[in-house]
Design a protein around this nucleic acid. Structure first.
Lengths: 226, 226
DNA sequence: GGGTTAGTGCGACTGGATGTACCAGATACA
DNA sequence: TGTATCTGGTACATCCAGTCGCACTAACCC
């Protein structure tokens, strides 16, 4: 399909070939970074032309590194989730209490979306069931949250089969609230938003425990083998 | 598909004009119905060509009735919400207990999305901040839910300014859970999904009341001041 | 009937965006 | 020097949204 399949890296082959090993990957990364810049600048509906311009290369060149717009899109979303993960890694580590964990997670998500609104809408604007990028994005977020539910699964008494649905529900709730807030900042301060979200999440989690006949201490420490 | 129904004709001066009164509206409705059919058939990425074909008219004709694809999109989404509203109107009436209300709302939403998956993704696939259609859709849903929060606002002790954020959060949670479930029906039955969602929503609502120092009876009757 | 006023059918066109083909130039390697 | 590979850039193909224009039809008014 692509006009010239870029070098099939063979270690023992010609040095002229070896010279370009890994070039495609680094180029891809470079373009992805440019795309993120372009999204911040032009909004969620960037054209490949604009991306290429920010990347400093002619548009047709993009197709040397990406199979198409969808491929680029997937890469951008993957990268965005990576950035979010890196930034929030300190907070998302399962340390401290359950409340600390929830608070930290929500706080970093709010903060991140706040500072990357266009990128956030870019991800969201492809929210179809078939979109690989969107599915990857949600799966990545789900992975973060799975950490929490695994740690407290026993105390929760949460049925395993319900876990994914709960996680996607929580993600949806947080995203949707933030999405609304981004366009209506006058209603709440960022801290108020965060506090409310944390309380709501806590209500759900505690409610699940209660329903299973358990109780969950908001200050119980996570990450400790019991 | 549906036969166009002539709308009430306003008394005009010229009979030649009167003859076509309401024609545009009924044509719009006809096209919207065709679009919904086309979406169910071709998926969320229908082209105007496909819609025109289902509507049984040449594509350029669409632009006689709609200002463009966005206009058509808005009309389709509006119509979809209308259909949802009509179907769920019996359940969404604020009768019975709080729990009844939550249960009824969630149940109809689950059922509807289940039977109109492509239409649901069509709505969702335009989830940008600027999309009029998407905003209308959410606003319509929000209106439904506002009914609940208004009725129990005092008992809840919910700050007014938080209400919209809560509503959007709840919508997001429900939608996201359902969206995940639609593609993973093997995990949960429809009833299990509904039951869990209802419990989670209840947890949040009850948690808000508790936080305000009140208690909320799940079986208290709605629609009357206490 | 003749003229008017609407909507209709249909083909042709514009314009923008994605994606492809091709070729000349540069660079490091053999 | 010749070769393999990436690079720049132009031109082209394709698809889709949206527009224009013209001939046609049907009802209405006189």
């Amino acid at each position: 399909m692509s006009e010239s399949v870029q070098l099939p890296v063979e270690p023992g082959s010609d040095g002229r070939a070896r010279r370009w090993a890994g070039q495609r990957d680094s180029r891809r990364a470079q373009v992805v970074d440019a795309a993120i810049d372009a999204i911040q600048q032009y909004g969620p509906d960037v054209s490949t032309e604009q991306i290429a311009q920010v990347a400093g290369m002619p548009r047709p060149r993009l197709y040397r590194y990406f199979d198409g717009k969808e491929d680029l899109r997937t890469a951008v979303v993957t990268r965005a989730v990576e950035l979010l993960g890196v930034e929030a890694i300190g907070l998302l580590k399962p340390r401290g209490s359950v409340m600390d964990y929830i608070d930290g997670s929500v706080r970093s998500l709010v903060s991140w979306i706040d500072r990357h609104a266009n990128l956030y809408w870019y991800i969201q604007s492809d929210a179809t069931s078939e979109s690989a990028a969107y599915q990857n994005y949600r799966a990545a977020l789900a992975l973060h949250l799975t950490t929490l539910t695994e740690l407290v699964a026993d105390e929760l008494g949460l049925e395993r089969k319900v876990t994914p649905t709960l996680i996607y529900g929580l993600i949806g709730m947080v995203e949707s609230s933030i999405g609304h807030w981004v366009d209506n900042r006058d209603e709440l301060t960022r801290d108020e938003l965060t506090e409310n979200l944390v309380r709501w999440i806590w209500s759900i989690v505690a409610g699940i425990a209660t329903h299973a006949g358990n109780t969950l201490d908001p200050d119980s420490t996570l990450g400790r083998s019991r």
